[in-house]
Simulated scan of single mutants.
Amino acid sequence: MAMDARKQRILEAIVALYANDGEPVGSGLLANYFDMALSSATLRNEMAALTKLGLLEQPHTSAGRVPSAQGYRYYLDHLIDAPKSGTLPEKDRRRIDDLFAAMDAEPEKLVPAATRCLADMTGCAAAATTPQAPDLCIAHFEVVQVGRYSAAVLAVTSAGGVRTRVARVDTGLTRDDAANLAQLLNRGLTFVAPQDLSPMLMASMVLAAGQRLAPVIMAAQALVTTGPQACLEGAQYLAKMADVRQNLGTLLEIFSDNEAATELIRPEGNKITATLGCDLDPAMPGACIVSKRYLAGGGLTGSVALIGSTRMEYERLLPILDYFAARMGQSMAGQGQ
């Protein structure tokens, strides 16, 4: 039995109706949705056929139908149009523009702020990563004395971003120490790829600085090796979703590991990618992750995603995600302010 245009329209309608109230969709409700263009009998036959195809499920004998995981996958792969930012209502576009106009464009500040706004705007959890590039490295170091026993190590990346880490020096730190350390770091660790930070190189850096100042060298090493940082906002919205809340612990555990979280929300190419929770390892039944890549200029890219129920309002939410991703990249690149 093959899918035809009518079956596709019916599946699309059931996904939309089930997203509205979470109740199984019956033939009477479907008939009203189609303005009685199809009879209840015809709809019942088509729903039975979709059930045989594995695209619908019937929770109870007397109930209507709901999309199955396979049905959602078919819908996401074949029926939903690629979201266009132009389909976003003008009021939503202005709201998002106003949000970004008020944000600090520094990626480490912008990403959590934008992610929080995306979660509040959509009622889903939202996640994002700071931008990264394969050849990103540190172009310049500064070491600033912070009190008597601490040093702030500032690293400017080759893309213009700034990373910071504080190191404690138990024996105390002078301004001359800070200046000498900055010179040492700029000679030895600028434009060095993380994989080239050999134990021999780091041992020579510690030897040149002196053992008492080794914590500052270790802080600089951490800045060189820092990968994209992932953040999760709006977890409270998942706690309110009956079909998703059981996955909250698993999700929080994943986001305690930057590498795992970054991989979880990494999209395929430049299109929006939808991943059903049942396809993940570990599985998160009832959940869906939709993610989009953003372009921050200079070869830098990151990911932004919505995490919610499989019955989320895709037609409404995907254009919001698409435009958010575009504005994140533009803000980081200094455009569109």
Score class of each variant (00 low, 15 high):
E233P: 04
G334Y: 14
L43N: 04
V244E: 01
L295Q: 15
M328V: 13
N270H: 13
P131I: 00
A152C: 12
L251G: 01
R168I: 12
L50R: 09
Q229N: 06
A208N: 14
M202E: 05
I307D: 08
A113P: 05
L56N: 03
L197R: 06
A105Y: 09
N258R: 14
L76M: 10
G86R: 06
P285G: 11
F191K: 08
R6M: 04
V146P: 02
A274T: 02
V153C: 05
A179C: 02
D257L: 02
G249D: 02
I254H: 11
K271A: 05
T87P: 06
S39E: 11
G299A: 10
E108H: 15
D322C: 15
D196I: 01
R245G: 01
S256Y: 01
Q195A: 15
A151Q: 05
E108N: 12
A242N: 10
P83A: 04
A203G: 09
L118Y: 13
R212C: 07
L154W: 08
Q330V: 02
E263C: 07
Y149P: 00
I272Y: 03
G147L: 03
Q132I: 10
L38H: 12
D98L: 13
E142I: 02
E268H: 14
G227I: 00
Q183K: 13
K109G: 00
T171G: 09
R327L: 03
T174P: 15
D77A: 11
L317G: 09
A296F: 12
D104C: 05
V192P: 06
F100I: 00
M202G: 03
N186W: 14
L173Q: 13
A182V: 01
I254N: 04
A193D: 08
T226F: 03
S204E: 14
E12N: 12
K84T: 11
I96F: 11
Q236D: 13
G160D: 02
L264N: 06
P194S: 00
P194Y: 10
G277P: 06
A37H: 11
A13D: 03
L181W: 07
A283I: 07
N186Q: 14
K7M: 15
A102C: 05
R116D: 14
D257S: 14
L184D: 12
D98A: 15
Y294W: 06
V290E: 04
D322V: 06
A242K: 11
G22W: 07
A49E: 14
P319Y: 02
A128C: 13
L173M: 15
L318F: 06
M1E: 11
A82N: 06
L207V: 05
L248Y: 10
T171V: 11
D120Y: 04
M205H: 13
G334A: 15
P67T: 00
T310G: 08
Q145G: 10
Y33S: 04
C288E: 04
H60I: 05
P89A: 00
G308C: 06
P282Y: 03
L197Q: 10
S150V: 03
A155L: 04
F100L: 02
G297E: 08
A2S: 13
V143L: 01
P131T: 05
G336I: 02
A179D: 08
R187N: 15
E90H: 10
Q58V: 05
A283S: 14
T42Y: 11
C231H: 07
T301N: 08
A69K: 02
